[in-house]
Simulated assay, not measured.
Amino acid sequence: MRVDTLALEGISSQSAYEAFLSAAKALEPGFIEECCADIVLAYHGVSHAVEQVLGGGAQSVSGLPHVDVGELSLLPRLVQGLAFAALRAEREREAASFGSLFERAQQERRRLRKAADAFAESHLLPDADIDEVWLHARQDVLEDCLSLVALFRRNAARIAGRSPVTPGEVDAVEQLVGQVRMVLGQSGSARQEENALFRAIEMRDRFWTLLNQRYDVLWRCGAWIYGRAVVDRVPPLPVRPALVRREPGGVADGAAPRVDMVVPRSMSTPGLVPVRGGSPSSPSRTPERAVSRHLDEIQREMDRKTRFLVRIGALPSARR
């Protein structure tokens, strides 16, 4: 699905990009998430959420621990910086000789990783492979593709008949990675293109991760104010496959692209006070399953981070 450059140009801001550049660069590489977002829709959603939380409740949330009201008020500007970073990444992709191949590699990586995450959640993989799925999701795209190919082959018997990815498709991913690497190694100019494109993509993803982390704080502030009605006031960030070309005939002309609503996760959780009950002014209550789903996401993220700390030796392992 191509990026809507005209729509992004309408909200992008180079000054906003430069204002948040140092904060984006300061993020730990292991926590960077791929940007799969409808950025224009996110801009309008974030602007609405900031108004809902800070418009009438700024004074109340300013006293919460680990909450910077000034930082939260600038979230719409952060999205404008993200739009500028996304435009740069798209232009570099179009200019790179291997851009279309790398685009396909990103798409195939997402397919394999989603399937691997599902197998890990269902405990269909050995413990060592579950750790690999959860701890190495942020490595280089090409390396991650090859790691996932090896994982699928190691566990072919375990996942036989349960995988949405066929053995033939796994082989095709390995061949695709070989094609990308061959193009990258053909000339010095290809190597320069690699640097320009990869760095632009990494910066776009850094801005997206920064937005996720700070928007998560805004969501928690909204939950403290509105309780279960928070989803009506602070909607989850809209995500969809990004920088993936739409296959011919895959979507009817004029049809709206599918957009999933995903609650962001931050790598550090602010210690907010317990959530209040629903606001009397709320016209309706959000179903409990929406909040439960968000809590499940938080729990899974904590489990993954705990596994990471065990892996690097920061925490003792429970296995004997």
Rank of each mutant, 00 (worst) to 15 (best):
P280D: 09
R265E: 15
L74I: 14
E132W: 00
S317A: 14
Q80T: 14
V180M: 04
M182F: 15
G70N: 12
A24K: 02
A223K: 09
S281C: 06
L87F: 04
Q299C: 10
C145A: 05
L82C: 03
L176C: 07
A190T: 03
D296G: 10
D232W: 13
S281P: 02
S122L: 08
L176I: 03
R93T: 10
D296Y: 13
R181W: 08
F152N: 00
P241G: 02
W134M: 10
P164H: 04
Y215G: 02
H44M: 05
I201A: 04
A242S: 14
S163L: 03
V259M: 04
L8M: 05
L211A: 03
G63I: 12
W224I: 06
L135M: 14
V170L: 13
I225T: 09
A23F: 12
T306S: 15
R289V: 13
A19V: 07
F98G: 01
R206P: 10
Q107L: 13
P241D: 05
S284P: 06
A137N: 09
Q106L: 15
Y215R: 04
T306Q: 11
A49D: 03
Q299R: 11
G63D: 13
A116R: 00
V183A: 07
L78C: 04
V262Q: 12
V149K: 02
R93L: 09
R265I: 11
A105H: 00
L21P: 13
Q80S: 02
S147M: 09
K114D: 12
A318K: 13
E33I: 10
C145P: 00
R265Q: 14
R199Q: 14
R110A: 12
E34S: 07
P316S: 08
R88N: 13
L197I: 00
C35T: 03
V61F: 06
M261N: 15
N195S: 14
Y226R: 09
R204C: 03
D4W: 10
E194N: 15
E132I: 04
E288C: 14
L74R: 15
P264Y: 01
G254H: 12
G55R: 04
G277C: 12
L210S: 06
A86S: 08
V40T: 11
E143G: 05
T166E: 04
N195D: 11
V263G: 06
P248Q: 07
E51I: 15
E28F: 09
D129F: 04
L146A: 07
V239A: 02
Y215F: 09
S147F: 00
R154S: 06
E193G: 08
G63Q: 13
E301I: 11
H123V: 14
L142K: 02
G168Y: 04
F84H: 12
C221K: 01
P167E: 05
L197N: 02
R77V: 06
D260L: 08
S189N: 05
L125G: 00
F20S: 01
A200L: 03
E33T: 11
E9I: 06
R276F: 04
Y226V: 02
W224V: 15
A58F: 01
P274M: 06
